[in-house]
């Protein structure tokens, strides 16, 4: 009897191990593939020239594989989008979790979930058809497809991520802290600013970084509304070509295993390391305060 039970336990254990291993192996294979297809570009161009090269002319003769304009494009739209999305996301989370009455809270939460559910191509469409012509006319620009437009649409996409993760972090702040604060004669505002937000700070930082990671990896929106110019921008209303947009737009045209093809995979590697860095940072921050017992995710 005991022996059968033990065998059953072992079988179940094995099954779970196989499923877990399968997903990890799959991801590892994708990664290996990414590196195998990307690394050969460094036979024609040095990593330094690839990353910091100012000219992206992959189809010229001779081709130039400098992705610096693409990196700058990605970083610029990500940071501007975050500058817009972080205050919106964090403050709406504070409002939802601490201030809003129950009925408004439910409505707001569903609206934010709704925004999260909008396919990015629809948001890109909105940026193209509504935002771009409006911007072009209002600011008298050559094109409405530019950094500002892409940043605004990306911000709209990042707000739900930032808001919902921040909200979880705020909810995780133990009620005891709030009670202690009120019992000492603090007002609601003082309690939020001096106790609740500091206690949830690691979770909020995680939210912000994950929101940024979402923005930097987003492809469809930047493909549709960033304008696609592979040049280093000089103003906020210039067009850019962020890395994901470049990969998506050009991969179909690049001959198999050509220099261009390898360069696009190498761009993918750079993008991979950037998102990895964001995620590691988020992980580090959310672990950092754990031992002292403050609220984390």
């Amino acid at each position: 009897m005991a022996a059968t039970r033990q065998r059953k336990e072992q079988a179940i254990q094995m099954l779970f191990f196989l499923f877990a291993a399968f997903s990890i192996v799959l991801l590892a294979l994708i990664l290996i593939f990414l590196f195998r297809e990307g690394l050969p570009i460094f036979k024609t161009v040095t990593p330094i020239d690839f990353i910091f090269g100012k000219f992206w002319y992959p189809t010229y003769e001779p081709p130039e594989y400098g992705i610096w304009p693409l990196i700058v494009g990605s970083l610029v739209v990500t940071f501007i989008a975050s500058a817009i999305a972080v205050p919106l996301g964090v403050l709406s989370a504070v409002y939802i979790s601490e201030i809003a009455p129950a009925s408004i809270k439910e409505i707001l939460k569903s609206v934010i979930e709704l925004i999260a559910g909008i396919p990015s191509v629809v948001l890109g469409f909105f940026g193209m058809v509504i935002l771009a012509p409006w911007m072009q006319e209002t600011f008298d620009l050559p094109t409405g497809l530019n950094i500002m437009n892409a940043s605004l649409v990306l911000a709209l996409m990042a707000v739900p991520t930032i808001s919902s993760i921040s909200e979880d972090a705020l909810y995780a702040v133990p009620n005891e802290f709030k009670e202690a604060s009120y019992a000492l004669g603090a007002t609601k505002y003082e309690t939020i600013v001096k106790v609740i937000i500091p206690a949830a700070l690691s979770g909020i930082s995680t939210a912000v970084i994950l929101g940024m990671a979402r923005a930097i990896g987003e492809t469809m929106v930047v493909l549709m509304v960033a304008g696609g110019a592979a040049a280093i921008p000089e103003s906020l209303f210039d067009s850019v070509r962020p890395m994901p947009a470049s990969i998506a737009a050009e991969m179909g045209e690049a001959p198999f295993r050509s220099g261009h093809y390898h360069a696009l995979f190498a761009t993918g590697i750079v993008l991979f390391f950037l998102t990895l860095a964001f995620n590691l940072l988020a992980d580090y921050i959310s672990n950092r305060f754990k031992e002292v017992g403050s609220a984390t995710l």
Binding site: P174, E176, F177, E179, A180, S181, A183, V195, P198, A199, F289, V292, G293, S294, A295
Partner: peptide, 9 residues
């Protein structure tokens, strides 16, 4: 309070 509740400060 019942449960000691110092702030994480």
């Amino acid at each position: 309070f019942q449960k000691p509740n110092p702030f994480p400060k």
